[in-house]
């Protein structure tokens, strides 16, 4: 019915239907990216916290003021200590994470490709993954000493298991039709693994990296329990022992910034490697 026709009927008087827009019932349930909100909320919370500390509503024993935390952080930077701590921690993180990831990739791939390896690895991983690595620290001291080895080993063990799980899960999820296609074209086993299985498992492997990187950072504090002079984890432990809560929170904030940086890097890597998605 055209507008004119409707208007005519309206003009004709009689039983003119009331024209009104159809009520809108959609909307919502569609998250939009709103970058600023997170930042604003963070700043508001920080402001409230500072205000609470200034007025004495939050005692210094309960929580140090953000300015005190910032001052502790500034001290770290000014004294140059932060670079010693960061350098030591990053070295342990990188070595442990790369080692754990590399071993995890190999074992996970074996578990994904060979029934024999899977039968052996999967129950073993299920049994060993949940063990808190901290509980093994005294053993690690005996096995790896109190030098860098035991610290790297703690992180390595922590990242190894989630990587294994991510990799063989990823291999399992590779479209079987693609593998059958490869076989039907007479591709060699190695080619199928390299060109079909690995790239197909890459999304799962990369999200596994996110988890293992987070675990590596979590384990940093545990790793640096043993004979560490420098390191963010050692700094946090010492601050806790000295009840220096401002330093404690500054250290935790550094860890969380480290987490953000790693997450950003992995996001970049995902965008680069998975641009075909």
């Amino acid at each position: 019915m055209s507008d004119e026709a409707l208007a005519e009927r309206g003009a004709a008087g009689a039983a003119a239907p009331v024209a009104r827009p159809v009520p809108f019932r959609g909307g919502g349930f569609a998250p939009r990216p709103m970058r600023l909100v997170g930042l604003v909320l963070f700043l508001v919370l920080l402001g409230l916290w500072e205000l609470g500390s200034r007025t004495g509503w939050i005692g210094p024993l309960v929580l140090p003021a953000p300015t005190a935390v910032f001052e502790a952080f500034r001290q770290l930077v000014v004294s140059g200590q932060i670079w010693l701590h960061l350098g030591a921690s990053l070295q342990r993180l990188l070595l442990g994470w790369f080692g754990g990831t590399l071993l995890g990739l190999l074992v996970g791939l074996a578990a994904g490709l060979f029934s024999m390896a899977r039968a052996g690895v999967v129950p073993l991983v299920a049994a060993l993954f949940p063990i808190p690595k901290i509980a093994l620290l005294p053993l690690f001291i005996i096995w790896f000493g109190i030098g860098e080895e035991s610290k790297v080993a703690t992180i390595l063990f922590g990242t190894f298991f989630p990587t294994v799980i991510a990799v063989y899960g990823g291999v399992d999820n590779v479209d079987r039709n693609l593998i059958r296609m490869g076989q039907s074209f007479g591709l060699s086993w190695l080619s199928i693994v390299r060109k079909i299985v690995l790239p197909g498992a890459l999304p799962a492997i990369l999200s596994g990296f996110r988890i293992s990187a987070a675990i590596a950072i979590i384990l940093l504090v545990a790793a640096e329990m043993i004979g560490a002079e420098y390191g963010i984890g050692a700094y946090i432990l010492l601050a806790g022992n000295l009840m220096a809560t401002d330093q404690l929170i500054a250290g935790v904030a550094i860890l969380s910034m480290l987490g953000l940086a790693v997450s950003w890097l992995l996001g970049r890597a995902e965008r680069y490697f998975l641009r075909w998605r």
């Binding site: 620290l137 005294p138 001291i141 005996i142 109190i146 329990m225 043993i226 004979g227 560490a228 002079e229 050692a234 432990l237 010492l238």
Partner: peptide, 12 residues
């Protein structure tokens, strides 16, 4: 060498 716990000291 900070080792956190007495048993760790003894082990070391």
């Amino acid at each position: 060498k900070p080792l956190q716990k007495v048993p760790a000291m003894i082990a070391a």
